Amino acid sequence: MVGVALEKSEINLEAAQQQLESVDAREVVEWAAKTFGDGLVMSTSFGIQSAVMLHLVTSVVPDIPAIWVDTGYLPPETYRFAEELIERLQLNVKVYQSPMSPARMEALYGKLWEQNDVEAFNRYDQIRKVEPMQRAIAELNATAWLAGLRRDQTKHRQSLHVVERPLDVYKVHPILTWNAKTIYEYLTAHDLPYHPFFDLGYVTVGDWHSSRPLMATDENGRDTRFQGLKQECGLHLPQTWGEAESLDSSLL
């Protein structure tokens, strides 16, 4: 990655949004690399389609820090899939975890995912996901964050722009307008793998206790997460870092 990150005040957000809405994903990444320089990071969950963003971004910025928030509750297949992609794409992965171990959390709060309650899930997400991501952004001196969100995933994501500034860092979404067909075509064109759970019927996967295969009765792929109680884990919501409120009753 080259260059020094620009001051936030130097970016005309409205103009950038208009400029980037109609360009392709690679151009968005190139713009972000040029604009934010060493302040640019990306996030990855090593989920079902994570190979797309990892390949796309590192083909432009090979050494970009890839933040992986490891909750400690991922399926074994996710850890093995992560190692496969790290080796194949030579990723500069930065692993962040909660300072509270899973055992300590369960001793203090119980198995939060079994409480069938949105507030319990929000507490879980704050401890295991939001706080580590907040710390990663601060420690890496990030000014912009590339994320693989798509408008067709949740109601909240339908309202997103390619570039935004919801908090103290900019968020850039190169594949925001993509759909399942576009994802498949990119994976095929570059001979990239899906997460192994794809073959088991999963369209999204996170922690082992809060993910399941898609069923015929599901209205949205994100209904397979968090026991259908919410769609977002808190990492990509526009409120304060500490909030993990779901936006309706229904990932990455």
Rank of each mutant, 00 (worst) to 15 (best):
E164M: 05
G228Y: 12
M133N: 10
T182Q: 14
H173W: 10
P174G: 06
V163I: 14
S211D: 13
H195C: 10
V203Q: 12
D223Q: 14
L200T: 08
H190R: 14
R157P: 10
R212Q: 05
E232Y: 05
Y202R: 05
Q158N: 05
T143H: 05
I183N: 12
N220M: 10
G228T: 01
Y186K: 01
W145I: 01
K155T: 04
Q227W: 15
F198L: 08
E131V: 05
D152S: 11
L200C: 09
R225S: 08
F197Q: 10
H190D: 08
I183M: 13
Y170F: 15
N179H: 10
H161T: 01
S210W: 00
R165I: 01
T143E: 07
L146E: 07
E219N: 11
E232I: 03
T188W: 09
E232R: 01
R165S: 05
L214G: 11
S210N: 09
W208N: 05
S211Y: 12
A180G: 08
A216R: 11
L187I: 11
W208L: 01
L192T: 13
D152W: 00
R128A: 11
S211L: 06
L192A: 05
A142G: 02
R165H: 06
H173I: 00
W145D: 00
R212C: 00
P196H: 07
M215H: 11
L146K: 01
L176K: 03
R225V: 02
L160F: 14
G148K: 06
D218Q: 09
P196K: 09
G228C: 04
G201S: 11
P132L: 02
H190V: 10
E219K: 13
G148R: 01
W208P: 07
R212F: 04
I127A: 07
G206A: 02
D191K: 15
H161I: 03
E185C: 07
T182N: 14
G221S: 12
H190W: 08
R212N: 10
T224R: 11
S159Q: 15
A180M: 03
F197V: 00
V172E: 00
T182E: 13
G234N: 02
D199C: 02
R151T: 06
T154G: 04
F197L: 11
D218T: 00
Q134F: 07
R212G: 03
L160Y: 12
Y184C: 14
A136F: 07
L140S: 01
G228R: 09
I175Q: 02
